[in-house]
Each structure stands twice: as structure tokens, then as C-alpha cells.
């Protein structure tokens, strides 16, 4: 058996790490969930019987926060690449704090909605906002778990310029989640 392992494997034909590739495919499936939800939103809206109301102002702030967290994530990633380990840790911690601030902001936006008499149960226009933010928040929590895993590895000196896979995947996912929210925010503002 040892002999077999020593003999070189056949060269893979595509030079993408299978794990990274898997992540991309996961992202595709999440994209499809939100694509279908927002299409459903458009279909339902064109159907009439639609409640018009202003979006919570909190969305503006949370959008800003999540974009900022993407920037700090990128900074952490670049620091890891340069083996600036303390910057890496700071970057990850700030990202983590921002992400939690984002979630709190989203939760607050729900109470703003309630303040406008827009409830989860009621006109579909309102329900959709709760569903979209909720689903996004749910995915963001998975991103936070991933972030914490990376942070723990980083604190144990397991993330550095020669071991970038984990943080690369995490930042890809993070940017995706941020982009997803920006899309949802623009979508909701346009089709309100």
C-alpha cells in the first residue's frame, strides 16, 4: 500500500482545489434559493393586493456594516498572505464584531417593521421581507460559525501564507454573503 501512495497520482485535469470547488457549488445552491424567493416576490407583487410601506431605515446601516465587514475580512486575508499574524487576528475579530452588529441591526429592523404595522403574518409584501432577511440571517450565522473556526485556527497559528485554503474559502463565503445582502437591499428598495 505504501508503494502505491508514493507513486504519483495522476495530474488532476482542473487545477481548482476540490474543497474550494465544493464551496462554489454550495454558493450556487444558495443563489438559487434567493433567486427563486425574489422571483416569487416579483410574481406575487405583479399579482396585485400588495401593501406599500417604507423599508426600515436600519437596513441602510446594516448594509454599510456588512460592506465594511467584507473590507475587514479582505484585510485579514491579505494579512495572512503576508504572514502578518497579529493583523490577521485583529481583522478577523473586527469582522466577527461587525457581523454580530449586522445581525442585531437586522433584528432591530424587524421591530421597525412592527412599528410600521408590518407583521410576518399579514400581507405577503411584509412576510417576504421577514423571510428574505431571516433566510439571509440564517446563512450569515453559518458564515459566523465558519469565521469562528478560522479565528480559532488563526489563534493557533494554523493560518498563514502557506496555509491559506481555510481563510480563502471563508473570505469567499463572506464576500458572497455580503454581496447577497447588498443585492437583497437594492432589490427590496427597487421593488418596494
Amino acid at each position: 500500500m505504501a508503494v502505491q501512495v508514493a507513486s504519483t497520482q495522476n495530474t488532476p485535469i482542473l487545477r481548482v482545489d476540490p474543497k474550494k470547488f465544493t464551496l462554489w457549488l454550495f454558493i450556487v445552491s444558495i443563489v438559487m434559493i434567493f433567486a427563486s424567493m425574489t422571483s416569487a416576490y416579483v410574481v406575487k407583487r405583479s399579482d396585485g393586493n400588495w401593501l406599500n410601506f417604507d423599508l426600515p431605515e436600519a437596513f441602510l446601516y446594516t448594509t454599510f456594516i456588512i460592506v465594511l465587514s467584507s473590507a475587514t475580512m479582505q484585510w485579514a486575508y491579505l494579512s495572512a498572505k503576508k504572514d502578518a499574524i497579529s493583523n490577521l487576528n485583529i481583522g478577523l475579530v473586527i469582522t466577527l464584531i461587525l457581523s454580530i452588529a449586522f445581525l442585531i441591526g437586522q433584528f432591530y429592523s424587524w421591530s421597525q417593521l412592527v412599528g410600521r404595522d408590518v407583521y410576518f403574518v399579514g400581507n405577503a409584501a411584509g412576510s417576504f421581507i421577514y423571510v428574505l432577511t431571516g433566510l439571509h440571517g440564517f446563512h450569515l450565522i453559518s458564515g459566523i460559525i465558519f469565521l469562528i473556526i478560522v479565528l480559532i485556527s488563526a489563534l493557533n497559528y494554523k493560518v498563514h501564507s502557506k496555509k491559506m485554503l481555510l481563510i480563502e474559502m471563508c473570505s469567499t463565503y463572506w464576500h458572497f454573503l455580503g454581496g447577497l445582502w447588498v443585492y437583497l437591499y437594492l432589490f427590496l428598495s427597487l421593488y418596494n
Partner: peptide, 24 residues
């Protein structure tokens, strides 16, 4: 990969209608 997430969305909204009283 492209179609099952859509079934998930359909089912999720149905769950909300069934168990939470929404009107999708």
C-alpha cells in the same frame, strides 16, 4: 443543484402558510 433549492423555497413558504398563518 439548480432546481432543488427552488423546491426548498416553495416548501418553506408552504410551511409558513401552514404553521404560522402567512398568506403566500
Amino acid at each position: 443543484l439548480l432546481s432543488f433549492p427552488v423546491l426548498f423555497s416553495a416548501a418553506l413558504l408552504l410551511v409558513f402558510d401552514r404553521s404560522f398563518g402567512t398568506s403566500f
